[in-house]
Amino acid sequence: MIDFLQRFGRTWIDMVGRLGRATLFLLHMLGALGSLFARPSLLVKQLYASGVMTLSIVLVSGLFVGMVLALQAYNTLIDFGQENRVGTLVALTLVRELGPVVTGLLFAGRAGSAMTAEIGLMKATEQLSGLEMMAVDPYKRVFAPRFLAGFLALPMLAAMFSAIGVIGGHLIGVDVLGVDASAYWSQMQNATSFYSDVGNGLIKGLVFGFVVSWIAIFEGADCIPTSEGVSSATTRTVVYSSLAILGLDFLLTAVMF
């Protein structure tokens, strides 16, 4: 019994300790962001690694999600003779919810795991210690550019996801199922507001970008420097990021809409 209690307590103490380390790490990393103004090329390189490399999967899934939404919405709405509203449904679903959330999940799987694995391997092969030996601050050189790139890339990808999804919905709804094209766009415009729908979608993307990059980089920097440790850190990144995205999405939706 005492053993069990001890293990239970140990787990909680470890968890709180990790949370504290993660927060300190975040503050240190945010403090190092300013140095990026001196070397913007580092940021561009990381934007390539996290943004451009994730682009293809985001665009393809965005297109298909839009197409599926249009198909489903049409099949339901045709019963009420309201098939003109397919555009509204597709646009609001994508811009408010699916755009940021699905992009966040894809981003965590594609770019977040890569970030963790890269930083974890840097740690395992003692490259981070090497940088410190050469008086190069790894926070400025390695962590901060990755963090800012992830933070910026996710909302951008989410916007592209929503835009291509709406086009996918147009392909199926208008070109295949025969909804009137002008009704598709005008109903959509009547229901979607730029500031409260598109703007809030972007804010969601920024929040998810912040959290996913933070988790990914911290897990990498905090991992046990063995091949096993790196692999479990990568798994944790994907799991924690996905859970954080889904939980935060609920909170943000409850506050925003």
Binding site: V52, V95, M160, S162, W185, M188, Q189, F194, V198
Partner: peptide, 21 residues
């Protein structure tokens, strides 16, 4: 990365002009 930024601006343009009011 430049193309990526352009795609983002294109997406925002679609969201502003075509999707929202």
């Amino acid at each position: 990365v430049g193309v990526f930024m352009l795609l983002f601006f294109g997406a925002m343009f679609i969201l502003a002009m075509k999707v929202s009011n």
